[in-house]
């Protein structure tokens, strides 16, 4: 089957690298930074004001793609729960010697527990590797979107985008 966002719902690496919200590999290696996986020109802009440092710009018209100023971005992650598309992640390649930290939005119950080992999944929801939940951040101003950070081996950081939903199997 054909690859890419329009036919599979999964953006390909080539598609991602072309978008203005995707940081350069140089910047990625330097420390935590936002990765904005928003590839289509839709009328949407909450990310622009979400960032306190002004590192995201949509501008006019509102259908512009969000553009990341990778030098301004500190990877603080505030924008993650404020994007209604759940399209923003933060990756920190400097987290430890061999691990990177991937931070993503999460809206399912029950929440994962900090320090637990879970199956980290890729953009298709398939388990890819084991990861350790480092932080589960639930804030009132996030309005029920929880921000989860997971440590995985560096080579998986650009593919891990979530965890296996933790729930009892229905009958």
């Amino acid at each position: 089957m054909e690859k890419g966002l329009e036919t599979t719902g999964i953006p390909s690496m080539e598609e991602l690298e072309k978008t203005p919200g995707f940081p350069s590999s140089k910047r990625l290696m330097e420390g935590p930074v936002a990765v904005i996986e928003c590839l289509q020109e839709i009328p949407c802009d909450p990310c622009e004001t979400a960032c306190p440092l002004g590192a995201i710009e949509v501008g006019k018209p509102i259908t512009n793609l969000p553009e990341l100023d990778e030098d301004k971005c500190t990877g603080c992650g505030i924008c993650i729960p404020l994007c209604p598309g759940l399209a923003i992640f933060v990756i920190d390649y400097t987290y430890s010697e061999d691990e990177a930290l991937v931070t993503f939005p999460y809206e399912f119950l029950p929440l994962p527990e900090e320090d637990s080992l879970v199956n980290a999944t890729d953009r298709s929801g398939r388990p890819l590797t084991k990861g350790r939940i480092v932080k589960v951040l639930a804030r009132k101003q996030f309005d029920r979107t929880v921000v989860v950070s997971i440590a995985v081996l560096k080579k998986y950081a650009q593919r891990v985008r979530g965890i296996v939903l933790n729930r009892g199997k229905g009958e």
Binding site: E6, G9, I10, Q40, I42, G85, R123, G125, G162
Partner: peptide, 29 residues
Amino acid sequence: GAEVVAIIEALPKIGGYGIHASKIRRAGV
């Protein structure tokens, strides 16, 4: 808490926004 076995689409392209498609794919659908 229920399962979505699949989303099927007659056209050769997903109709809705990529952001919505991506988040449902990440959840394994």
